[in-house]
Write a protein that binds this DNA or RNA. Structure first.
Lengths: 153, 153
DNA sequence: GCAAATTCATTCGTATGCAAATGATATCAA
DNA sequence: TTGATATCATTTGCATACGAATGAATTTGC
């Protein structure tokens, strides 16, 4: 390495300004890649359902019948997005819709028998997905990571 | 709490099977929410450009002219996705396209003067976005989190 | 009790994101 | 050299994701 290079490096170390911005070190960029990797692992284990569709079924299993909007809140989806997800689950016979008797604005969503079977069958696979996603980390690292990630979400 | 409730709780603790699956504790779900939060913070600071568009400009600033596919690899986007992103940046005059002289398959992408101005102007805002995204964590937690997140991505 | 504000759901428009198929070009191997 | 492969880019189709606008129904505030 030349004297000039060393001088240049010294200047860079001492004045880390805009020259320095490295996309691949930004949280947002890495977060996007980590999410991509998870979705890819998910697809490899559960091919016929997307993560959002799975989330909807899993949450319905937890809470039972709810309104479409309420379900959206529970799985962090806005109204427009949740509608599409529920439409597709309904088209496949995994959920059924009904009108709320009292509040006529609300559209109630519930699992069908088939939907309940599906989610029960898929949950063991979902556990594997979680495991594989976290596989690069040790048990202790997983605990630390989940704690910090939860703070960011 | 009734005796029955306590017995029930005991049973749950001792047999953590499928009854236990909690969507909101799964990496994939929290990863998705953390990513959503970041995108929202990004939009609040940089309204007229999306994170993928910004990523494309920032990477072009780093590496200079490259082929569309190569750029996609560098910013973790598949060929179909990167095409749309570049099309929109081109429509706004931030990048320009040209044909590779030797390899006629390749489409070269480069920043325009306007694109270069834009990315230089936006980088300070991007630093703020990173900071705000990580704001819930202490400096030490940030270091730990970034190390572990990188392992997962 | 009634007007204003809120909530629920839908629709539209735009932007990722990816699988799969296709066409053009380039490279490799027999 | 040529036939098989591989690479680059495009297109299509489907599925999130969200802002903004709209309409219907409910709740609030005075």
């Amino acid at each position: 390495m030349s004297v000039e290079d060393n001088l240049l490096k010294l200047v860079e170390v001492e004045t880390p300004d805009d020259q320095d911005y490295l996309l691949q070190e930004q949280v947002g960029f890495i977060l996007r890649k980590a999410h991509q990797r998870h979705v890819s692992i998910f697809a490899a284990h559960i091919g016929d359902l997307t993560p959002p569709q799975f989330a909807a079924l899993a949450k319905l299993r937890d809470v039972g019948e709810t309104s479409q909007n309420q379900l959206g809140t529970l799985i962090a989806m806005d109204a427009a997005t949740v509608k599409g997800v529920i439409d597709r689950l309904k088209a496949r016979g995994l959920v059924e819709l009904s009108k709320h008797e009292v509040d006529k604005r609300r559209l109630l969503v519930n699992l069908t028998a088939e939907g309940r079977d599906a989610i029960e069958r898929l949950i063991p696979l979902a556990r594997e997905i979680t495991q594989e996603t976290l596989a690069p980390l040790s048990a202790k690292e997983i605990a630390t990571f989940m704690k910090l990630l939860a703070k960011l979400a």
